[in-house]
Design a protein around this nucleic acid. Structure first.
Length: 194
DNA sequence: AGTGAGATGGCCT
DNA sequence: GGCCATCTCACTA
């Protein structure tokens, strides 16, 4: 069952937690690759020093975050990795959820000969071949190259671990905000260096 | 096991 | 010129 656009209009931390256990679908012609979302981070827009749209900073890159909830936001980081985000709320709240790790539900793609894992935001994009062409996709539409659905899989609140976000030490106090969420005990959750 | 450097491009002062 | 919502590899021990 595909998630409708309303799903993405709730508060960003709520959307983030709700995305845990949902299914990321990548369409490649007639084939659809599936993976379960197991780790996410919330980025709270204009009031969040760790967010690209902090203080309403509108750049070429962040245009996607000003779209309505349910669009994708893909950007290049460190010159070589892509990160996949899900935009939340409306255009006056440029907020998003970073997909940090997924559990593959389909066989590896043909081009993925090096068996790249999916336990990190850069790695999962490489695994699926996600790049700038997957920016601004409509995740609530089954016809999109990228969309999100759900199945019978359920998690309880007790299975959700909350902690601080990764790689945002520059953000001062906000670096401590408990906006990283993952499914307790899931082996595909990213390993953090510290 | 733990540390450190390098890759590499877009966006920033 | 410097920093980044990252990751891999090489080096120490």
């Amino acid at each position: 069952m595909i998630l409708n656009q309303d799903f993405y209009f709730k508060k960003t931390d709520v959307v983030a937690k709700s995305l845990l256990g949902k299914i990321l679908n990548l369409r490649l012609g007639s084939v659809i690759q599936k993976a379960r979302i197991v780790e996410v981070e919330a980025y709270l827009g204009i009031q969040d020093p760790a967010c690209h749209t902090y203080k309403n900073k509108r750049t070429n890159r962040t245009q996607s975050m000003y779209l309505a909830g349910g669009h994708s936001y893909v950007y290049l980081i460190y010159g070589m990795y892509h990160c996949l985000n899900v935009v939340t709320r409306d255009s006056s709240h440029p907020e998003a959820v970073l997909i940090r790790a997924v559990q593959p539900l389909s066989a590896a793609l043909e081009f993925n000969k090096k068996k790249i894992s999916t336990n990190g935001p850069g790695k999962l994009c490489k695994h699926f071949g996600i790049n700038k062409s997957h920016d601004q996709m409509q995740l609530w539409k089954r016809t999109s190259p990228l969309f999100i659905s759900q199945d019978d899989f359920q998690i309880t609140k007790a299975e959700i671990v909350s902690c601080s976000r990764v790689g945002v030490d520059y953000a001062g106090e906000a670096a401590q905000w408990p906006l990283r969420f993952y499914i307790s005990g899931n082996p595909y959750v990213s390993k953090i260096k510290k």
